[in-house]
């Protein structure tokens, strides 16, 4: 457990160090490059800001309406044997279709339950170990006009399920 935290805290500094040292070794103008990239990063965030406002408002409205409580009440009997809190289920389902809508739900869960709670940890882990299955498949297959996708969906769903399962196991371990 402590080792995991230690590794986590080492990764970012080590990656930054490697990049800067290699950049200097290649005699690059690392500072100018950093500034140029930072500007792009800045623009990216500005571009996603309207999306985020739209989705956070929609999720906020749903949360305040009491609909999420109703949904959890329905889902609890279904998922209570899976160690999967009913609150997280909508996030996992939406994540298969839209990454930004899922982000809206995740942020709502962070706000409601805290980032370091069991739910917060579980959402964080599932966020990084699952992908937008249906969106990705439709975009990638569309460019080559594939209509018969054969075993792709099965494999993608198995990968997603194992990502969620691993997230549950690790979150349970981290949060006791």
């Amino acid at each position: 457990m402590n080792t995991l935290v230690m590794i986590s805290n080492m990764i970012l500094p080590v990656v930054i160090l490697l990049i800067v040292v290699i950049g200097l070794g290649r005699k690059l103008d690392v500072y100018a490059l950093f500034i140029k990239g930072a500007e792009d990063g800045f623009q990216t965030v500005i571009k996603i800001m309207p999306t985020l406002i739209g989705l956070m408002v929609a999720v906020g409205v749903l949360r305040a309406s009491g609909f999420f409580d109703f949904l959890s009440w329905i889902l609890t009997p279904v998922v209570k044997y899976l160690a999967l809190p009913a609150e997280v289920v909508p996030f996992i389902l939406i994540k298969m279709f839209s990454s930004s809508a899922a982000t809206g739900l995740a942020l709502d869960l962070f706000k409601t339950y805290g980032t370091d709670s069991y739910i917060g940890t579980l959402v964080s882990l599932s966020m990084s170990s699952t992908e937008t299955v249906f969106y990705t498949m439709s975009v990638y297959f569309m460019v080559v006009k594939i209509t018969k996708t054969r075993y792709t969906l099965t494999g993608a769903l198995i990968a997603t399920a194992s990502g969620v399962a691993a997230s549950v196991a690790i979150a349970l371990w981290m949060c006791g």
Binding site: L4, V5, I7, S8, N9, I11, L12, T103, A106, L107, F110, K111, G114, T115, D116, G120, T121, S124, L125, S126, S128, S129, T130, A159, T160, S162, G163, A165, A166, S167, I170, A171, M174
Partner: peptide, 25 residues
Amino acid sequence: YRSSYGSENPAGIIAPAILATLFST
């Protein structure tokens, strides 16, 4: 996201997240 919602250690998720995503891969 984690740092803006007051996580004690926002980057503490890196290694556990790598484990989870490595497992699915």
